[in-house]
């Protein structure tokens, strides 16, 4: 399954599963949970993925983004 790290700028994706419980916990607080749709706003090659949800922009490091499984919309 593709992860957040596979997204390209402009992609929309549905969050399917987050492997690490700590990551899932932190994401929940930020308003990112399984079943939400996010947009990829920017990519740093072999670095963080910047996603947008509502009015919020969030940068997620590569090690984390590889753990967040998504479904392309």
């Amino acid at each position: 399954m593709p992860t957040l790290d596979d997204l390209k700028v402009g992609h929309c994706a549905l969050i399917k599963h987050i492997q690490d419980p700590d990551v899932a916990t932190q994401a929940l607080r930020m308003g990112i949970s399984v079943g939400e749709t996010i947009t990829c706003l920017a990519r740093v090659p072999s670095g963080p993925t910047v996603i947008q949800r509502g009015g919020m922009e969030l940068a997620i490091g590569q090690a984390l983004s590889q753990q967040i499984e998504v479904e392309l919309q």
Partner: peptide, 9 residues
Amino acid sequence: TSLILDLPP
């Protein structure tokens, strides 16, 4: 730990 950072406008 890995980065989770909120980007202010």
